[in-house]
Amino acid sequence: MKILVCIKQVPDMESRFKPDGAGLWFSEQDLAFRVNEYDEYAVEEAVQLREQLGDAVDLTVLSIGPDRVVEALKKVLAMGCDRAVHVQDPQAALKDPWQIAAIIAAFARDKGFELIFTGMQSQDRGSAQVGVALAEQLGIPSVTTIVAFDYADGAVTVKRELEGGIKGVVKLSAPALLTCQSGLNVPRYPTLPNIMKAKRKELLTVPVAELLHEEALATTASFHPPAKKGGGIVLEGDVAEMADQLIAILKERTTVLR
């Protein structure tokens, strides 16, 4: 059985974002990158399924982006994926979700993947569309935001998160695509022997031009920080002085003490 996991490398959200030169996306300068959190749940679930079914499973992980995404692929190979595909695209951030899905679909179409796991969204763009658009283009069913997963003889049973803490159970049969939500599992920390093994695993590099034949449906008009509004004030120092300052502020700027 062949399984595909799609991952994205995203900037660490603690970083300070600045628009890039063209003002269409963020500048990558001074950013630290990591595997998209939701994609780690996808990887972990796929690896657990691999452990459940044994060697009959072949687990491919795919990522689109510039060369830096190889780091992310190596990490998830160490978590237990069998092979990695790097769709080389320095301009990936400028593609819309439909195009990203089209790239993956072009790769996956003739490969016979029975299950595809993706994160429910990326931490940077957050469109939550690539998974479902990919299922649409491949013509297979999909379930979003799963928080529990079970597989037995081609039958997939998942729990998905609904509003207000309510969960819904969905049954479907493979082939299918699932987008993973937090709470599904705790992604494993790669062990050192697996990190070393991962160095020898297959890593296929495919130029994006070989896979992308779709036009963008939506384009990004501008990327800019929101206009600055008044921030909070942190008072520090002597308690008595802070109390005086607070009273002064309340008097000057509010009607509380009038």
């Binding site: 660490d12 603690e14 300070r16 001074d30 630290a32 990591r34």
Partner: peptide
Amino acid sequence: INNFEVNGNPFGLAYAS
């Protein structure tokens, strides 16, 4: 530990700062 891996510090604060 994840923070060390990404930002080189345990707090998860941006390495650039």
